[in-house]
């Protein structure tokens, strides 16, 4: 019981402090600019481009896809920087020097970003309803909330893996941006998956977001939770796989870094 309580405290303190540390150097204006205005402007851009490409009647397709995709801002950039920031700020040796449970420490880095990412998606849906006329009258809102939570968790799983990679690469922002923009193509947020070549569809289904976006579209169209449950389970599974790969890499990097004495070597 004592071990459980200690780990719970470690999880909570770790998650809160890493999140506060990440935004310590930011001011509220920068948070609002990066986490509220930038994603919304991106959503508006793709919604207008999509309606220009097809018709105004298809606006919902693009609003839902891009609103859910906003979770990647927290899931990819936020989580990666929380993990990779340990190396940037020189705190990695202290982290690896503690006897703390690595699983709790590692997954704790993503927790606040899950909440933050969900908030971003909810704001995006809000703007979608108010400014772009998205109709949620047939939507099971609780199921949509669950979809947002599952998709955010799953995207943070990929973020944890990217965070691990940021421990061994210098060009963290290149990798982050690249993955973030590739998700715009592969997730089906802007292009129906059926329009993509077969090999791209295979990649799409191996990534987070794809099934979450499909589930959200079905729910907004009036589907019950039971219809999208298989999509949500699969989405959760994809995220879990990425998170676990990330965790094992994290453990392996720690082992190798200690063995070779290459901790913090850029």
């Amino acid at each position: 019981m004592r071990i459980f309580t200690n780990n719970l405290r470690l999880f909570w303190d770790g998650t809160l402090l890493s999140y506060r540390a990440l935004f310590h150097w930011l001011r509220p204006a920068q948070y609002v600019a990066s986490k509220v205005f930038m994603p919304l402007a991106q959503m508006f851009f793709f919604v207008f481009l999509g309606t220009f490409a097809t018709s105004a009647a298809n606006a919902g397709f693009y609003i839902i896809g891009n609103a859910i995709q906003i979770t990647a801002v927290s899931g990819i950039f936020g989580v990666t920087m929380s993990v990779g920031g340990e190396r940037e700020t020189g705190t990695l040796p202290y982290l690896f020097g503690t006897p703390a449970n690595r699983l709790v420490t590692f997954f704790g880095r993503a927790f606040m970003h899950v909440l933050d990412g969900m908030l971003g998606v909810v704001i995006a849906f809000g703007w979608g309803v108010i400014l772009l006329g998205l109709d949620l009258s047939h939507t099971n809102l609780a199921a949509l909330g669950l979809t947002i939570a599952v998709t955010t968790l799953s995207t943070c799983g990929l973020g944890l893996l990217m965070g691990c990679l940021s421990l061994i690469t210098v060009n963290v922002m290149f990798v982050n941006n690249f993955v973030y923009f590739l998700l715009l193509i592969f997730s089906g947020a802007n292009v129906p998956l059926a329009d993509l070549p077969n090999w791209m569809q295979v990649v799409s289904y191996a990534l987070p977001l794809t099934r979450g976006i499909a589930a959200a579209r079905s729910l907004v169209a009036g589907a019950p939770l039971a219809d999208v449950a298989p999509l949500l389970w699969a989405e959760l599974g994809v995220g879990l796989v990425y998170g676990l790969i990330g965790y094992f890499l994290f453990s392996w990097f720690e082992f190798e870094a200690k063995r070779r004495g290459t901790l913090e070597v850029f």
Partner: peptide, 10 residues
Amino acid sequence: RHWQNAMEFP
């Protein structure tokens, strides 16, 4: 400059 990220897509 803090608004730099938000100026791209607009």
